[in-house]
Amino acid sequence: MDLTLKIWRQENAQARGKFETYKVTGISEDASFLEMLDILNESMVDKVQLPIAFDHDCREGICGMCSLYINGRPHGPDQGITVCQMHMRNFKDGSTIVIEPWRAKPFPVIKDLMIDRSAFDLIIQAGGYVSVHTGGVPDANSIPIKKEHAELAMDAAACIGCGACVATCKNASAMLFVSAKVSQMALLPQGKIEAARRVQKMVAEMDDLGFGNCTNTYACEAECPKDIKISNIARMNWQFLIAKVGAQKMNA
């Protein structure tokens, strides 16, 4: 495959940045998207040019590091997978591919296509945990949990925190991520105890970081590589409402 790539280049967080055009030839349609970028980078190194910086780690679709906005969609045109799992057969030979970093105020560009997603860590630090030691692994069935709840919690826990929901949302809202993290714990007995405090702290942190508001366009659900459902957002909305109305006033 021969392709034209329009790639965002930005030297550092302060630089203005611009699109640069590159040609790649002889790419196998069985290559992954990141392998295609590796080939381009190797050819650039050979020409003593600065290679393109992009986030990646496990390349198995589970670490949540890759973060490319390809032709107007996070993680590219394929459904339910991260960009590292996407193959070049999703593109036509001779086509032009526009590659951009995630765009959101809380996700500043570090260099080229690399972005700083520490904002998600700050949200987790604000309340995305169980603050007491819950002991070792309990015997099976010693704590009764409804199968439905266990499955919903597991589905929510599938979120890898890649930020595709923020990237695709027209408001750069982090509601799908936050709601998945709120849900995965609130649905289980160990996490339920602190549910009211957790949801308030995490939402407050999300707001402080400058993420946008959810307008229920559901683009996040459509683009999530782990198929996190918007029912998590509704669950978080309800929990927040109950927490605000019923819970004791929080200490600062």
Partner: peptide, 24 residues
Amino acid sequence: IQNWMARPKRYKIEGFSHTSFFSK
């Protein structure tokens, strides 16, 4: 206004994700 401020730099190509049409 908060939503606009949350994305100060817009994408070159955007709006290709499947969304509920009127919500946009």
